[in-house]
């Protein structure tokens, strides 16, 4: 098969579909990482460079809960997600918000600084070696005909969809959710109805961190943990956020799936290392033809 002058291998439709389905599973985790990022961007208007480091930290937490207490990585969510919320809340309220004096360019540098601190601390305490959680069911799964889906993949997809839906419900139905959306656009108006804006910012940052911790739980059964693991996912998550539209939940979800599928098809046709490059190509095409992303607002 030839495409743009490249000589691509030919595959049966079953192989292609199977590859696309595994892309959907992978994409669901990208979506969850991107969800936290897009929420924080949408409300605080900052690009959180610490997001990857927080993912890595949460993965270590899941790993050690398994290693030391024998806790199943999915059950660990019950501890890691609330823990991450509190950590994220404190990080925004105590460090990022305080250090930045409300200036966006400083916030950017502060989040970058936080990520460097966390990564170096991880290197120091945990060393650069890879650590893996072994779950007894990591190779069990369901035969989908064109492909075999292992339980960790199925749980990742189900978990991501469930969490995205739950977050959407929270944002639509609760006063705190409405306040988060209100603060995103009109801070002074928010203060005048009695919303504590600093608190809501920290809540938002906490929720974003909780999302990334949930993603960590879903990742650990299939990905080894090491201090640099955050980069891989967060670079992709940035792409997802831009592709989906900065600040858009549905964009994060659809963007996550698109990127996951693209990456897997890229792997299939162009080889392992080219998978990630196809993502970058998509990224550039989106910026060229639809800079606001698929679901982004045109202005403001």
């Amino acid at each position: 098969m030839e495409f743009l002058g490249l000589d691509l291998p030919s595959y049966s439709w079953q192989t292609v579909l199977g590859s696309a389905i595994s892309g959907v599973f992978l994409g669901s985790i990208y979506a969850l990482v991107a969800l936290g990022l897009t929420l924080i961007y949408g409300v605080l208007h900052i690009i959180n460079f610490a997001h990857g480091a927080l993912l890595m930290l949460a993965m270590y937490a899941v790993f050690f809960l398994w290693k030391l207490l024998g806790l199943d990585p999915y059950l660990a969510m019950l501890i890691v997600v609330p823990g991450a919320y509190i950590f994220g809340y404190g990080l925004q309220r105590g460090v990022i918000g305080k250090a930045s004096h409300g200036r966006d360019e400083i916030i950017l540098l502060v989040t970058l600084g936080v990520s460097i601190v966390i990564e170096n601390a991880a290197l120091f305490f945990f060393s650069a070696s890879e650590r893996s959680v072994l779950v007894p069911y990591d190779l069990d799964g369901i035969d989908l005909g064109v492909t075999y889906a292992v339980y960790p993949e199925l749980i990742a997809l189900g978990g991501s969809l469930l969490i995205t839906f739950a977050l959407w419900l929270f944002m639509s139905l609760t006063d705190t959710g409405k306040a988060i959306r209100a603060v995103a656009k009109e801070r002074q108006g928010a203060r005048l109805v009695g919303i504590n804006v600093d608190h809501i910012f920290a809540v938002t940052f906490g929720i974003g961190t909780a999302c990334v911790a949930a993603a960590a739980s879903l990742l650990v059964p299939t990905y080894a943990v090491h201090p640099q693991i955050g980069y891989l996912f967060v670079l992709i998550a940035f792409t997802v956020v831009v592709l989906g539209g900065m600040g858009s939940f549905i964009g994060a979800l659809v963007g996550g799936f698109l990127i996951g599928v693209t990456e897997q098809l890229g792997r299939l046709y162009l080889g392992e290392s080219m998978g990630v490059i196809t993502i970058s190509v998509i990224f550039i095409l989106v910026l060229l033809f639809r800079p606001t992303g698929l679901f982004g607002q045109r202005s403001g």
Partner: peptide
């Protein structure tokens, strides 16, 4: 709040 509904604006009036 321009980005949320009229109803939600009113509801947030009684946030506190």
């Amino acid at each position: 709040f321009p980005n949320i509904s009229v109803r939600e604006n009113l509801e947030l009036g009684s946030y506190l």
